[in-house]
Design a protein around this nucleic acid. Structure first.
Lengths: 290, 290
DNA sequence: CAATTCGTGCAACAAATGTTTCATGGCCGA
DNA sequence: TCGGCCATGAAACATTTGTTGCACGAATTG
């Protein structure tokens, strides 16, 4: 079979879970859900809280390849040890070579993205959200990898404004939708270099139709930002070998949705609750377990 | 005499430190400097590492007002409990006040997400990427807002492995695809609380089919993480009023795609270039202009 | 200087820990 | 239906845990 990931004891546990006896699965889930208690409290304590036999913990540990509960616990403890992002001098730039170059690269990229997020213009987002709030209808367009951002925005906005939000080209050719833009409506276009013709066309159509144009882009020089009423900038740069980063765009999209939601007040809240109730009634979700 | 600050066991310890006997000061400093080990390892272990007498730990605890080392250790353990989601002190209390409340909220959320990104397990991503690299086919599943992550992953992986990647349910009912999982293939499932039944079904189907299961989730306790060969964790927590954050999941997805691409070597690079050439030929992109 | 207090290490203690064994009961294959 | 297998819980096991009593020595006080 496929071999489990050695990186984390929790991962090993998860991998082995389904192949375990019923009772050991319960105990395993309990450990996974309460791994901090697992490292600090005693086996018997955990057994009492989990409503299981103390011996089950020993057996669980052995079942997933450890010599005993002690060893599993030690592994969990090490996995949880607070990272030594020491306040000391910079050890950050060390070891970028060797077989784990990929790991270092990923870490570096994540740090870079983390640094970029706070640079996102919160004020502009709030302004754009106000525009969305007063829009009679909201269109969303994004192509290539930006499609995912567009669909996320579409999903979240629809949670509380189901009838007034749609993706451009979502139910037919783009051109049909382009002719439907009206003043008083809002059009959101997401894109970065290289810019797709389709996204530029949407932006131009929105402009000519007199709709409110909101551009989420990596530069004010982006063609779809021309004529935009609101331009929300993010950083898409990535280390060589990576695809353009979308975390910034996602963060903007979610913030935009959140602020728009809060502007909607109690009406929006009620709409969201209705939607969630419907989903729950359709048993979309897995019920919480005790 | 002087009442120590009750806020944290560590601060109590520090304030009482100067008035303690010499040997107890040493032990106290050791505990303060290694409080994580203090909560996890045994008294004798610590004594050996600190070069002190085990009894000193009991006496230290009593000297600062606890009934014994056990009680001190319990206090330290509680103080370290991770349930306190964010290390931020100033939470969102400025809601609904003034026109800038939204701006502050957005800024705060972005900072929180930025703090969460470096905690993403880079090593696990590299491991999972290796699994993807050697997979004959790659299935991707995500529902609700996670669908956007799934589609992004689908898009980026397809850029250099066009024939071997597809979204579960992308071309018909999910059930058709569930039966198509085979050993040697990889299935990626993305989800967070509350978990959709559909995503759990995909994970279980992947497991039973013997395919390599990669779970991108907010917790190792997530049902779709059970049986997973690789579990990639992100933080989905958001301030009240916000939707669950997806930036972490997006960052993981993109890192995963990037590392998988780099593992593909020159073959992947060539495939990507072909794809880009095709897009350019179809004049998908706007040509660079002055 | 003597008497005393106090800090310290050692060793023994009872309690609690993780482990193992064994008897039981359910399950599947023959 | 029978026989073997395995999962499960309870109890007994050896070990380790945190604690405490005791002795020794240094520092303090009269």
């Amino acid at each position: 079979m496929a071999e489990p990931a050695k990186s984390s004891p929790l991962s090993e546990l998860c991998s082995a879970l389904p192949s375990l006896p019923l009772r050991l699965q319960e105990v395993g889930r309990f450990v996974a859900a309460n791994d901090y208690d697992a490292t600090t409290r005693s086996m018997r304590d955990l057994a009492a809280e989990a409503g299981a036999d103390p011996a089950a913990f020993t057996r669980l540990a052995k079942a997933i390849g450890y010599s005993g509960w002690d060893e599993l616990r030690a592994a969990l403890t090490e996995a949880r040890r607070p990272s030594q992002t020491s306040p000391f001098s910079g050890r950050a730039k060390s070891r970028r070579h060797g077989p784990n170059a990929d790991v270092a690269l990923v870490t570096e990229k994540l740090e870079a993205e983390a640094a970029g997020l706070p640079r996102i213009p919160a004020q502009s987002i709030a302004d754009a959200a106000r525009a969305l709030h007063s829009a009679k209808r909201i269109w969303i367009a994004g192509y290539r990898s930006c499609r995912s951002v567009a669909e996320l925005l579409n999903y979240e906005l629809r949670l509380f404004r189901p009838d007034q939000v749609q993706i451009v080209g979502g139910s037919g050719p783009d051109d049909l939708d382009l002719g439907a833009f009206r003043p008083g409506e809002a059009v959101i276009v997401i894109g970065f270099l290289p810019y797709t013709r389709a996204s530029v066309r949407v932006a131009q159509a929105a402009y000519h139709a007199g709709a409110t144009l909101i551009a989420i882009a990596d530069s004010v020089a982006a063609p779809m930002a021309e004529g935009a009423n609101h331009v929300l900038l993010f950083e898409a740069d990535s280390p060589p070998g990576f695809f353009p980063s979308l975390t910034g765009a996602i963060a903007i999209a979610q913030s935009l949705a959140a602020v728009t939601f809060s502007l909607g007040g109690s009406a929006a809240k009620k709409r969201l609750q209705d939607t969630e109730a419907r989903l729950a009634a359709a048993s979309t979700y897995v019920s919480e377990k005790g």
